[in-house]
Design a protein around this nucleic acid. Structure first.
Lengths: 84, 84
DNA sequence: TACCATTTGTCCGTATGTATG
DNA sequence: CCATACATACGGACAAATGGT
């Protein structure tokens, strides 16, 4: 899954992996994505790397974060450029 | 009613549910809202979560609490910005 | 008087998750 | 990595207030 030796930054690889799971319907809207600690376990990266990946997903508008609760897949039309 | 897996904090969902019942006229002014223990039963949350929801309703000026008696829907003009 | 049931108030601890240094 | 802080959520235990028997 994650290539620790390749040129692509780890946090991008993790973000892309989560994005793929969202696109595949493995992670559903309004449902939690793996926590920071779970990403550390599952992808073998540092917590800071997991946080960077989540930050990237936030910037893409794919997820939302609620302090004290977790990070969730954004609802259907929560994209930055909402269609109308 | 309450989405235990969603991103919205449970105490907010409970507060919104009670607010909806007040707006719908299901809970009338000067009449009690469900007790903390009833909320625990009806919504499947912890008592601390029910208390936080009630605290939120108090902050909104929608209800008033009497120790040993219960929490009641605020009378008509008991809003935070009372007219005149 | 004394009891009792109900309800709110307050404290304890545990767990999880994010935010920050 | 680690520690700290904050927010959410759960569970238990006991006190205080209220109203009725």
């Amino acid at each position: 899954m994650i290539d620790h030796e390749g040129p692509t930054p780890l946090y991008m690889q993790v973000a892309d992996a989560i994005t793929a799971r969202i696109d595949a319907g493995d992670l559903l809207p309004n449902r939690p994505i793996p926590s920071e600690n779970q990403m550390v376990q599952e992808y073998g990266v540092a917590r800071g790397t997991a946080r960077k990946a989540i930050q990237l997903l936030r910037d893409r508008g794919l997820v939302i974060t609620v302090v004290g609760r977790g990070t969730y897949v954004a609802a259907a039309n929560d994209g930055p450029t909402s269609a109308r």
